[in-house]
């Protein structure tokens, strides 16, 4: 109560854009948890970026003996085809975080990894459905939420299988799978936030101006739900990476031969008695990135909710 928000009166003069940006970013560093999370995530981003230009050895060529344990030449050993695991691990970051391959033989890529696009898709679809359900209410709400509930009730793995068998393997299919499975969760979150926000007086004010429903939903309500949605999205990126791993493990993930972590675990599993070491690096990579994103999201949640007051 009496502990007034000190930031409120500090800058009366117009801060520059850079300054504003920095004050936004610096929120991250006030939380130790978020800082640690950010460092882990940035680590993998940088690894991925570096891998575009340099990996110790070409990731897809069998240059070495098969199933080697870590040694001075191959830091993390080699896999069953004699490919360098360290190189593959680095390159595996790309498809998750940094690039999406357009199907066909064009070889074109879209910036942004499969996990990011998948979550983005889930956000767009989820926010649209959630906002409509909350703001319009009544039958809209009933209808949308029933459909989403039915989707949640359907086992996720089976859902992937159905989608992938229907559409063949490929990056876009994985994105689609992530979107479809993520959308109900996002929709629920957005709906609950919007239900609260729509009772505010500024929504009444917009209505008394005769604004269209779409304006109210996307311009008045959505920006105020931003914080929690962003935090949720970060967590979802973590889940999506898990999911890509799961799909890869089932052999229906991203198409070979380009490496991705899930596929690497899957392949290493088959030769686990020959090389017990091989599954570890990709598994640890998946786990650490997910933990990093979770920590970052948790830390941000703490800070964002504190700043909302």
């Amino acid at each position: 109560m009496t502990v007034a928000q000190p930031t409120a009166n500090v800058h009366h003069s117009e801060p520059s854009r850079l300054r504003k940006f920095w004050s936004g970013v610096s929120v991250v560093f006030t939380s130790k948890i978020a800082t640690v999370g950010l460092i882990i995530v940035l680590f993998w981003f940088i690894i991925g970026l570096v891998s575009f230009f340099w990996t110790p050895y070409p990731p897809n060529s069998s240059l070495f003996a098969q199933n080697l344990y870590p040694n001075s030449v191959n830091w993390l050993g080699t896999d069953h085809l004699g490919r360098d695991i360290a190189s593959r691990l680095m390159a595996g970051t790309q498809v998750i975080l940094l690039k999406t391959r357009v199907p066909g033989d064009s070889g074109w890529i879209i910036p942004g990894g499969v996990a990011l696009w998948g979550v983005f898709g889930a956000l767009v679809v989820g926010a649209f459905l959630g906002l409509n359900a909350a703001y319009r209410g009544g039958w809209w709400d009933q209808g949308i939420m029933q459909v989403l509930d039915a989707m949640v009730a359907f086992p996720a793995i089976v859902l992937y299988l159905v989608i992938i068998t229907a559409l063949e393997q490929g990056d876009f299919v994985v994105i689609f799978a992530i979107t479809v499975t993520g959308a109900p969760g996002v929709a629920r979150l957005v709906r609950s936030l919007a239900l609260d926000i729509k009772t505010r007086d500024y929504i009444r004010a917009a209505e008394t101006r005769g604004e269209k429903a779409s304006y109210i939903m996307f311009r008045e309500i959505l920006p105020n739900a931003r914080g929690p949605i962003l935090v949720d999205a970060m967590l979802r990126v973590g889940y999506a990476i898990f999911m890509i791993g799961t799909l890869g493990f089932l052999g229906i993930g991203l198409p070979p031969p380009d490496p991705d972590w899930g596929n690497m675990v899957n392949e290493a599993r088959r030769f686990i008695f020959l090389n017990a070491w091989a599954p570890f690096p990709p598994s640890i990579a998946i786990a650490s990135l997910v933990i990093g994103l979770n920590l970052f999201a948790d830390g941000m949640r703490e800070e964002l909710t504190r700043y909302q007051k």
């Binding site: 505010r200 007086d201 500024y202 004010a205 101006r209 005769g210 008045e220 105020n224 931003r226």
Partner: peptide
Amino acid sequence: KRLIQELQMVFQNPDSTMNPA
């Protein structure tokens, strides 16, 4: 629209009368 324009409202709660965004 013209009619809507002529009728406006001032709300009670200062904390929710403005869109924070």
